[in-house]
Amino acid sequence: MTVRLPSPDGTTRAYTPRTEPLALTATGPLTSRTVFSAAHVVADPYADTTPDSPAAVDWDATLAFRRHLWSHGLGVAEAMDTAQRGMGLDWAGAAELIRRSSAEAKAVGGRIACGVGTDQLTGPATPAEIRAAYEEQLTVVEESGAQAVLMASRALAAAAHGPEDYLDLYGHLLRQAGEPVILHWLGPMFDPALDGYWGSSDLDAATETFLDLIAAHPDKVDGIKVSLLDARREVELRRRLPEGVRCYTGDDFHYPELIAGDEQGFSHALLGIFDPLGPLAAEAVRTLDTGDADGFRKTLDPTVALSRHLFQPPTRFYKTGVVFLAWLAGHQDHFAMVGGLQSARSLPHLARAYELADGLGLFPDPARAESRMRSLLTVYGVPQ
């Protein structure tokens, strides 16, 4: 039986869904790469909220999804942009998420790293206020027992006058950190307010500042997460890191080649696309663990079309597609998002996401995914 899917030109096309999911049999930990999935949050669909009110989170479903990721050997990158930090989830909600997820990680033996930012600041801030905001969040993460990810700050981007302001603030935070942290460089395609981060819109100049910071504190930097969607730049940066400092790719366009690596090294991973791809990504890395790089690429390369679709401009709205696929896959009972962000992508965009994900065999129950897709199409008035 076919499904009529809408196309961007206003027509519909027939699509025949697959009847069986992809068979995934490998189990056990991942050994050759450290892999984090940046995980989404599940909204409470019954909460009487508005886009401007604090997020209402379905904690049971949110934590269940994290257990799903841990069960496949993936780490969870918590309270980062995939969890809608600054796009529906405020600091109070993020702090609760960090505490709950960290406790769950301890209970099941899962690896977790949590985002540290300054999103409790709602307007222009002084350097002292930005430092205090970072310190508050770093304390919450470290007290929860999780690894810290120092995220880029909109407030710092707005207040900094040059590279020295970044070096001063980040140097202070690294000296304070109890354990090595992950530094996160998030490009403006993910958040336009971060343009010019590290003191310059010239990426070559910004890279030098970033490397200067790491070179001054190599014992306090576990690794860097690079989200610039520029594979060449990531490889060049990776090759210049001090010994022992890892590169976690955040490139949702080129992740197979960056994780596979070359004769001079490879990237680990901290990726939003590994939210919907979790089990398949884990399967691919286990293949790489055996030394079979070709098999790894054969498994993961076909997923890039879906990732590029979900992360197409405006890239920051990729979360909508991620949550949509979680609903189709049965990880939650509804397609609602904090901040009402389920409306951020068009029906043709979602239809193509369904088609690509189904073609990859990502849905554990293809019939359920088809039924849910049909229900959405009916709401939109698409004849079947």
Rank of each mutant, 00 (worst) to 15 (best):
H334W: 00
I182S: 02
S267E: 08
L183N: 01
A83S: 14
L362E: 04
M87S: 01
L69D: 11
F317T: 09
A132Q: 02
G250T: 03
A105Q: 03
D219E: 14
A269C: 08
D191C: 02
E283P: 02
A133M: 01
S101F: 03
L121A: 01
M87A: 09
E129A: 13
E135S: 13
P348A: 09
D204K: 15
R33Q: 11
H40A: 14
H309R: 03
A282R: 01
Q264D: 15
Y46Q: 14
T16D: 14
S53F: 03
D168M: 12
T315W: 02
A128C: 04
P51E: 03
L347Q: 12
D262E: 02
S227V: 05
L241R: 06
D358I: 05
G171Q: 07
V226E: 02
T139A: 15
R100Q: 10
A159M: 08
Q332F: 10
Y134P: 08
L167H: 00
L138S: 09
S227E: 00
I112Q: 05
G171H: 09
T25M: 09
T207E: 06
A293H: 09
H40D: 12
R100N: 02
V76F: 08
L24G: 14
E179P: 07
T2S: 12
I112N: 00
A55W: 08
A326P: 09
H40I: 10
T299I: 12
Q384N: 13
L167P: 01
P54Y: 05
W327C: 04
R175S: 12
T287I: 15
D365M: 13
L356K: 05
G93A: 01
L22I: 12
Y170M: 10
A357G: 12
L89R: 02
D165A: 05
S102V: 11
S53G: 05
L69K: 08
V3A: 06
V379E: 15
L310R: 10
L300V: 07
G75K: 02
L194N: 06
H217L: 08
A83T: 03
A369R: 08
I182Q: 03
T315I: 06
H349S: 13
F335K: 11
P314F: 12
G171D: 05
E283R: 09
K220R: 14
S102E: 11
A38N: 13
L74Y: 10
W327V: 06
L156G: 04
D252G: 02
D294Q: 13
I224K: 03
K319D: 07
G381A: 11
L341W: 05
D202N: 15
E136F: 13
A282S: 04
P276Q: 07
V41S: 05
S267C: 15
V304P: 10
G361L: 10
